[in-house]
């Protein structure tokens, strides 16, 4: 337990909280990266997935994308991006890699969600004279909300993890506390950084649990 007390001492030292390398700054960086990239990925993935699901096209692509995303190492993508012109633009590689790895779970879950809406409900909506757009927004989207939300949760957790690895390739965020600890051969700092990252990831997961529970009953019933 010595390692934990040393890490706790490191965490509670006010000197480690201030400055550009301080915990506060890294925490805000991590939060900003996660939130901005989650919004970006949702803006990219959700419209595509909903439209594809509505039309019933591109299913193989939407489903296989998740498998491809798992096989490609995050670290490799970060370093490859760093060595391309994207790398000249500050947090560019981090943002691009984060979005790349958040899109597959969003796309797959939203697509599957729309496709799994009961066909007879969709037919009934059409029979009532709803246009394609009305069917999508008033029938398919509300009914697929549980799976869409589940995809957002998976993507958010994935974003936190990827943002941590980005520190290996020089990106900002809480991972930098860990990599700095390795550079200084300071085990307390490494463990303290890891604890911060772990708590951050679990909090994100917890927030989404809460959102799913508070979501309208209709949105929960599908599970």
């Amino acid at each position: 337990m010595n390692a934990l007390t040393a890490a706790w001492d490191w965490l509670t030292d006010p000197a480690h909280w201030s400055g550009d390398d301080g915990i506060r700054h890294r925490l805000l960086q991590h939060l900003a990266l996660t939130v901005v990239c989650l919004l970006l990925s949702c803006l990219i993935a959700l419209p595509v997935a909903l439209v594809l699901g509505h039309l019933g096209k591109g299913g193989a692509l939407a489903v296989n994308l998740s498998n491809v995303g798992r096989a490609v190492p995050t670290f490799a993508v970060l370093v490859l991006l760093l060595l391309t012109p994207v790398g000249d633009w500050g947090e560019g590689p981090t943002v691009v890699a984060l979005v790349l790895f958040a899109v597959p779970p969003l796309l797959t879950n939203a697509y599957v969600g729309v496709r799994e809406v009961d066909r007879s409900v969709v037919q009934a909506a059409r029979g009532m004279g709803m246009t394609g757009r009305q069917v999508l927004f008033h029938v398919e989207l509300p009914l697929s909300l549980p799976l869409v939300l589940n995809g957002v949760r998976i993507a958010a957790v994935q974003l936190v993890a990827t943002a941590t690895i980005a520190a290996l390739a020089g990106g900002g965020g809480l991972g930098r506390i860990i990599t700095a600890g390795f550079n200084l051969a300071s085990t307390p700092q490494v463990v303290a950084g890891a604890l911060l990252v772990a708590v951050f990831a679990l909090l994100v997961e917890g927030v989404f649990e809460a959102v799913e529970r508070l979501a309208p009953r209709r949105a929960r019933d599908g599970r």
């Binding site: 941590t164 991972g175 860990i178 490494v190 890891a194 990831a201």
Partner: peptide, 12 residues
């Protein structure tokens, strides 16, 4: 849920 880099670091 714990990111891989943090997991390795916790085991250090």
């Amino acid at each position: 849920t714990i990111p891989s880099l943090a997991m390795f670091s916790l085991l250090l």
